[in-house]
C-alpha cells in the first residue's frame, strides 16, 4: 500500500484530531494492504498561464479506500476541482499517477460518476430520460434499464417527477436527478464537485441527508469537493485539506459525525462541543493560508 506521504510543508499534525493512518472507513479496523480503490501518487499539475507556468497541485499522495466518503476542503483556488477533474479523467496530471483498481486512469469512463455544481442536465429530455441516458447509451436493453431508472428515481425521491421537463424542477431536484444519473451506472466512485454550493440552506441540508443516506445504504465510495467546513464535517468519513497555490495536502483526518448521524440519528450533532472543536480547527487551518 502506498503510504500517505505528507510532504515537508505539512502542518503539525494535531493531537486533538485523529490523523489517518491505517483505519478503514468506519474507523474500526486496519486497512489491508492493496485494498485501496484509488491510488494517487506524487501527482503534480502545472498549467501555462500569462505569467509562466502555474503550479495548481503539488505532490499529492493519498489513497481512497472502498466505502470512504472523502471530502476535500480548501479555499477557492486551491486546485481541489482540478484534483477531481484528474480523478474523473478530464485532465491528465503533469506528473505522477492516478490508479483505479491498480489501473492508470487515462480518460473519462462511466466507472467514475461525476456530479457537478450546476448539473448539466439535458434540457430536451425528461427527468426519466436524463437518468436513463447513461445505461441507454451503453447499450443496456430497454427491459433492463427501465426498471433500473425507476429504482434510482425512487432512491432520490423523484418518482412522481419522472415525466417533468428539466426547467420545471427546482435546484435541489436538479441536483437529485444528477445524483441518480451518476449512480445508475453503478460507478466505482462518485465524484461530486461542490454539488450543493448553489443551493439555499434548507435544500442543501435536504440533499446532504440524501447523499449521506445513499452513501450509507449503498456503501458507495464518494469523493466530494467543498469549501464549506460544516458540510464536510456533516458528510465525510475522512477530510482532506488542501493548501492554496499550489494545492498540497496539509491535513488528512478521520471524522465520525456522518456515521453518528445515520447510526444514532444524532441530527443535533452540529451543536455539540466536539463538532465545534473540529470546525474551529479546520477553519483555522484554512484561514491560516497566506493570502495572495
Amino acid at each position: 500500500m502506498a503510504k500517505l506521504n505528507y510532504n515537508d510543508n505539512f502542518y503539525e499534525p494535531s493531537d486533538e484530531l485523529i490523523a489517518v493512518n491505517d483505519l478503514n472507513f468506519k474507523g474500526e479496523e486496519p486497512i489491508v494492504e492493496g485494498e485501496e480503490l484509488i491510488a494517487i501518487e506524487n501527482v503534480d499539475l502545472e498549467y501555462t498561464g500569462k505569467t509562466g507556468d502555474i503550479k495548481a497541485l503539488e505532490n499529492i499522495n493519498f489513497n481512497i479506500f472502498p466505502g470512504e466518503f472523502v471530502c476535500v476542503l480548501g479555499p477557492s483556488g486551491c486546485g481541489k476541482s482540478t484534483l477531481l477533474k484528474i480523478l474523473a479523467g478530464f485532465i491528465q496530471p503533469t506528473s505522477g499517477s492516478v490508479k483505479l483498481d491498480g489501473e492508470e486512469i487515462k480518460g473519462t469512463d462511466w466507472h467514475r460518476g461525476v456530479v457537478f455544481q450546476n448539473p448539466p442536465l439535458y434540457e430536451w429530455f425528461s427527468v426519466r430520460d436524463n437518468v436513463a441516458f447513461g445505461p441507454k447509451m451503453r447499450g443496456i436493453p430497454k427491459e433492463k434499464y427501465i426498471p433500473l431508472t425507476d429504482e434510482y428515481l425512487a432512491k432520490v425521491g423523484l418518482s412522481e417527477f419522472s415525466d417533468k421537463k428539466i426547467y420545471e424542477l427546482s435546484g435541489g431536484m436538479k441536483q437529485r436527478v444528477s445524483i441518480a444519473r451518476a449512480l445508475i451506472n453503478d460507478p466505482e466512485i462518485l465524484l461530486m464537485d461542490e454539488p450543493f454550493g448553489a443551493l439555499d440552506a434548507l435544500t442543501r441540508e435536504n440533499v446532504q441527508d440524501l447523499t449521506r443516506k445513499i452513501w450509507w445504504d449503498t456503501g458507495k465510495t464518494i469523493f466530494f469537493i467543498t469549501h464549506d467546513v460544516e458540510e464536510a464535517l456533516l458528510l465525510a468519513s475522512r477530510i482532506i485539506v488542501l493548501s492554496k497555490h499550489p494545492g498540497r495536502v496539509i491535513e488528512d483526518i478521520r471524522v465520525n459525525f456522518s456515521r453518528q448521524i445515520v447510526e444514532d440519528c444524532a441530527e443535533d450533532i452540529k451543536f455539540t462541543p466536539e463538532f465545534y472543536k473540529y470546525r474551529e480547527k479546520l477553519l483555522k487551518l484554512i484561514n491560516s493560508q497566506p493570502q495572495r
Partner: peptide, 23 residues
C-alpha cells in the same frame, strides 16, 4: 459540460450528434 458528460458515458459520435448536438 454536456460534452464532458457525454464523454463519461463514452457515447459514439453519431449518438452525440443525435442526442446532444442537434437538440
Amino acid at each position: 459540460k454536456y460534452f464532458e458528460l457525454a464523454k463519461v458515458y463514452e457515447i459514439p459520435k453519431s449518438e452525440l450528434i443525435k442526442n446532444i448536438i442537434i437538440p
